[in-house]
Design a binder for these strands. Structure first.
Lengths: 226, 226
DNA sequence: TAGATTGTTAATCGATTAACAATC
DNA sequence: TAGATTGTTAATCGATTAACAATC
């Protein structure tokens, strides 16, 4: 019914960083902060900070700045952290187990309820009291339990199949760690964590100076021109 | 000595995806591909694909398109994958162990040589033949061994300290999984994987429709206007 | 040769930054 | 009140898309 003016992904990706820095300010007993001061810490321009925040409301006060605690709460709310989230993990290998055992998520209301794997050696074991089930039971599990987020930590070749099962059984939010892009229907939200992609941007940047030197030299052809 | 025309981060972040899709094409025995066809698969516009690639060279041929294998090799090279990389991991908890055991990296020439931790219970153990050392030995290890990439998987509070040790002992590329932004000197490259940030953008998008409805309503004030 | 498709310039679109009136 | 700082509009910058001549 509304205008639904969309928030750009560029803005959305900055929101968790605001959340993180505001928590840090609370830890340091800072009560209020101006966009200028926050800019110095977080590294975005003051102008950008004000623009970003004003997408969601008038959280500041002229002549004063922003109340740190209030702003933190506003952004928590914007990020959906007023609710708890039940999650399941497909793929109980190293990575799946690591995510299941990562305590930082629990503090924000994220709960891993079950792991699923294809490997008989893993099925039946528990990681931090979270049981590993047979992947064939994923379908039934999703039927019987309210699950908000499906996490995919399987190898590449199984990822799409798992995603299909999740989507068919009501999952609308997928956190994908498999090194492939998933094909899902409109309305299903996928957030990718492509670790190798991330590592390759690191090696790109390590090599960039040499690479650009090489490209800009281009020794053969240049001699002939004008 | 060169012009050093910089490649934008937007382009750099797309490079690993080209790499991934080209490997997929090789797997499917596709020999050549046009920007149009690649566009259909990868989801970037054909125009963008040609622009991106032309930052680095003339890899295509009019009327033909791109040779898949050649282009794959070119991009591998651009990403620095002609070399091998020695890596060490600080923090041998779940996440550190998962990364140490993640086989996808090895295929591309990445080798985890050692883990380091503060926990006496972990020190001396091995993960996939990779030994866990006392974090106090990190300094000496970096002195005695050629290490290209430092990986930080410690809790937030220890991350900066570990980064300082790495930087002081010659590391110029850091892959950071700790939920904090590192302060490093110019010339040191940091690639962050902020898992919670990623998860929060997912929950943001899950809640976005409700949130924007709420913001766009603004019931109180609107009544009074014009 | 005719058709296809690149490399590249120009046009458009969107995101960031600057500026400043409003106001606490 | 005077000073500080927001919210917001306008200007700038950069990235994406469109168009097309060059050429395989």
């Amino acid at each position: 019914m509304g205008d639904k003016r969309q928030i750009s992904m560029a803005v959305v990706r900055r929101l968790p960083k605001y959340h993180r820095y505001l928590l840090e300010l609370i830890r340091n007993d800072v009560d209020r902060i101006s966009s200028k001061e926050l800019s110095d810490r977080i590294g975005f321009t003051a102008s950008q900070i004000r623009q970003d925040l004003n997408n969601f409301g008038d959280f500041g006060q002229q002549g004063y700045g922003y109340n740190v605690k209030d702003l933190y709460n506003e952004i928590s709310n914007i990020l959906g952290l007023h609710a708890n989230y039940n999650m399941v993990i497909a793929g109980a290998g190293n990575l799946g187990q690591a995510i299941a055992g990562y305590s930082n998520f629990e503090k924000e209301g994220f709960r891993v309820k079950a792991l699923f794997d294809i490997n008989p050696k893993l099925i039946g074991l528990s990681i931090r009291d979270i049981e590993i089930f047979d992947i064939d039971n994923l379908r039934n599990y999703l039927h019987d339990n309210k699950v908000d987020i499906g996490i995919i930590c399987t190898p590449r070749v199984q990822a799409q199949k798992v995603a299909d099962v999740m989507v068919k059984n009501g999952i609308t939010a997928i956190w994908n760690f498999a090194p492939t892009d998933l094909d899902v229907p409109r309305g299903v939200i996928v957030e990718n964590v492509h670790l190798l992609d991330s590592l390759l941007t690191l090696t790109y940047r390590v090599n960039e100076p040499k690479l650009l030197d090489y490209i800009n030299k281009d020794p053969e052809e240049i001699v002939e021109e004008e």
